[in-house]
Design a protein around this nucleic acid. Structure first.
Lengths: 244, 244
DNA sequence: GAGTGTTTCAAACGTATGTTTGAATCATAT
DNA sequence: ATATGATTCAAACATACGTTTGAAACACTC
């Protein structure tokens, strides 16, 4: 018989986790993380996942309810703690600074450092997960977009006000756009080592080094955030002129 | 009977295009562009496409050979001319400048202006296509990545040397990374108006204005390209310190 | 207007998908 | 031991997919 689909609480009376359930669920999450990362959500089948995890096909629906819920569980498992850590770190920085305003560099650090810690935690699939996350950001599936925006909203809101304080001259609307660009560069960067070959072949010894990668990304983004305001007047003249 | 799959050349002796074929192929391309844009490659079925186009299911395989080849045709139709225009514009700028070096702004303009022209050409699905393109960049399907990298390689190479001349102090390797970040911010920006809601609700009257969007993106990217070099020494100390 | 090659069409093919089922197995508490 | 509930398993379910087929419809030349 199957228990209620949505509830994962089915412990024994003594409070100890049933060992095999934990193993099965975690094996599924690990296999799902790797395969979703490699092929995306739609192109990954439950049969691939259960085969890679060494469990029965029906185990996914038994433990998670559906393929979509499995995908969300794969994301939540790492995203939840990481975003919590980001907010915690940001608030600690703010406490340390007292009344003085926080610099953009430090705010960005509060976003990057938890991601770096995750990337470094290889025994728990860190690097794979960051690639998966970057891809999920670009996935058109509505349930993924809903899930991510709900998962991210509190953190993004918190950082938006922090950046807004660090860049007082920047209009709110402009800041929103620039945060959007920032998330784009970050997601895209995390998503693909492959995509990088689009631009140039890279020394494979340096590839896979996500830490250097984020350290190169940070100054790029800080400079972008602090860029002068765009001149929004009369773009069409330039465009038409170039046609000649 | 079906003709050779790969060849699209099946004209009549007098050289005039058979009217119905052009209509069918183009209706399929239009419907595919819209649906691929909305749901991605894997999640869009040929039955959806042919139904939206008002043509028979078999028409896709007859005219394009396979779903993958249809997708490539959808991309090629607009990407090919756009990238050609980009290179042409860049070379014109270089000719105009003579010996003087081109500024980053103008090089970026050579990338943006053709994209803006496409976005503005709404009767030919311009804006939809840019979103589709942004999503294709993040798609993990191998055939998409191969196709895009082949399609983009010449253009990217051309712009890389242009930027390299405009930013002589920047090491080659650093430039490659920054171009990667640039492509990321650009793709992500073009891909989703939806994704923007992740950060904040936007005035719907301004949403959909891709021109303002790219004009806001340009200064952000120029500043990022010109950012000071990252300090790659001793990141771990900072990361560990923040843990306390 | 017969002949030729192209394009459309309804139908089917083979395969793969996510999900469900009901019996079997396992762990534990009484 | 036995009863109870959680978990596994092989099998099947219903449906959707991309692709193929062979005949009908069409356009055009001679």
């Amino acid at each position: 018989m199957r228990p209620a689909i949505n509830r994962t609480e089915a412990k024994n009376p003594d409070g100890a986790e049933p060992r095999d359930q934990r193993d099965t669920k975690e094996r599924i999450l690990d296999a799902g993380e790797a395969l979703f990362m490699e092929h995306g959500f739609e192109a990954t089948s439950l049969r691939q996942i259960t085969a890679a995890a060494g469990v029965n096909l029906a185990a996914v629906n038994y433990h998670f309810g559906s393929k979509e819920e499995l995908f969300q569980a794969v994301l939540t498992r790492r995203l939840d703690p990481m975003n919590g850590e980001r907010v915690r770190l940001l608030e600690q920085y703010e406490r340390d600074m007292g009344e003085r305003t926080l610099s953009c560099e430090r705010i960005l650090n509060a976003m990057f450092i938890p991601a770096l810690r995750l990337a470094r935690d290889n025994q728990r699939g860190g690097k794979n997960f960051l690639r998966l996350l970057g891809r999920a950001y670009a996935d058109p599936a509505p349930f993924i977009r809903h899930f991510l925006s709900e998962q991210y909203a509190p953190m993004i809101g918190r950082f938006k006000t922090a950046f807004s304080r660090a860049l007082p001259h920047l209009p709110k609307k402009e800041l929103v756009w620039r945060l959007h660009f920032l998330m784009g560069a970050m997601s895209y960067t995390l998503a693909g080592t492959d995509a990088l070959k689009l631009i140039a072949e890279l020394n494979p010894s340096e590839s896979g080094n996500d830490e250097l990668l984020l350290q190169r990304l940070a100054p790029f983004l800080v400079a972008g955030l602090q860029a002068p305001l765009p001149d929004l007047a009369e773009p069409k003249a330039e465009i038409e002129r170039a046609r000649a």
